[in-house]
């Protein structure tokens, strides 16, 4: 009896395990094949470049979000911080008359500072990250409107360059790849990155082992702010102007990308490569639905279902791991 059941269970286990560990990637491949069959417009050079450009903003935001989620928190402010950073940069250039490159750096610093404030409020002010960053969402969006008076401001050439082309390759794609490498290096190789997993897994055990939990949390949110600023500049560069309502709601895309990529919202789990795939899944679905002329209303429904499916896979993964 056991001889007949064993091979079956073993095959079932491997299949489950493979799916659980690479669910998002498998999903992405299936999606691409389906779109390739469904529409001739999908696999064209131009469309693939489009996807690359669109994914760059979401993915860069989501890389920052990955740090936060791995460390057991959440950052709802990344979309607003992205908009604020781009606006600060344009304002520094247009109104304060700073050189373009300095304005670009100023934008990044603005994002970093917003992140530091989030981190301080969470680690030292003991505000749950959900609340601290919800407040920041409102503050950052408000400041963006105050600075811009509700109108777009044009970006310096240095920022527009981020939205342009480097030879045949769009700059956003270059920035995306560099950001992915940096984020992955930080998370995998550095002390601070490894500590994030410990803090997210069990903050008290991490603290008693001598890890500087509060400083780690501040760093985590600071990184999320910095990556958000970069995403905001990419977005503004593409439009040659900082928009007051830019990146509204993007935080949800970023969270979705991280979760589809296999991170756990309870902390301690997650990878940059997974997040990258997660962001691609979101963007490819949107792109495909556009090509198939599905209205944006229905697109939202589909995206919601995809997120639910991805979390389902997350649950399955944890089950296979614990048994």
């Amino acid at each position: 009896m056991s001889t007949t059941t064993q091979p079956a269970t073993r095959r079932g286990f491997n299949y489950k395990k493979f799916l659980a560990n690479n669910g998002a990637l498998v999903g992405l491949v299936v999606l691409c094949i389906a779109l390739f069959i469904a529409t001739p417009d999908f696999l064209t050079g131009q469309n693939l470049l489009n996807i690359g450009i669109q994914v760059s903003t979401v993915a860069v935001l989501a890389f920052g979000m990955t740090f936060v989620i791995v460390a057991g928190g959440i950052d709802l402010s990344v979309g607003a911080v992205a908009a604020l950073s781009a606006m600060v940069s344009s304002w520094l250039f247009v109104s304060a008359g700073l050189p373009g490159w300095l304005a670009l750096v100023g934008g990044l610093v603005a994002g970093l500072l917003a992140g530091v404030v989030n981190g301080l409020a969470n680690a030292y002010g003991k505000l749950p990250s959900f609340i601290a960053t919800l407040a920041m969402l409102s503050v950052a969006r408000g400041l963006t409107l105050v600075i811009s008076d509700g109108r777009p401001i044009k970006t310096p050439a240095e920022v527009s360059f981020l939205g342009g082309n480097l030879g045949p390759v769009p700059m956003p794609i270059v920035v995306l790849l560099v950001a992915a490498l940096v984020a992955s290096f930080l998370l995998n190789r550095t002390v601070i990155g490894r500590s994030m997993y410990a803090v997210g897994g069990n903050a008290e055990a991490a603290r008693l082992s001598g890890l500087p939990v509060k400083r780690i949390l501040v760093t985590v949110f600071a990184l999320a702010g910095l990556f958000a600023a970069l995403a905001g500049l990419l977005l503004a560069g593409r439009l040659d102007s900082a928009q007051p309502q830019a990146a509204a709601g993007y935080e949800l895309d970023a969270i979705a990308a991280v979760v589809i990529g296999g991170a756990s919202l309870s902390g301690g789990l997650g990878k940059i490569s997974g997040t990258f795939v997660g962001a691609l899944v979101l963007v490819v679905i949107r792109n495909g639905l556009n090509l198939l002329n599905v209205t944006s209303f229905w697109q939202q429904v589909v995206i919601g279902l995809v997120i639910a499916l991805a979390v389902g896979v997350d649950v399955l993964r944890r089950k296979t791991r614990s048994s």
Binding site: A198, G201, N202, G268
Partner: peptide, 9 residues
């Protein structure tokens, strides 16, 4: 479990 280990790591 609560203070010594990150059980998932």
């Amino acid at each position: 479990k609560g203070q010594g280990l990150v059980t998932g790591a």
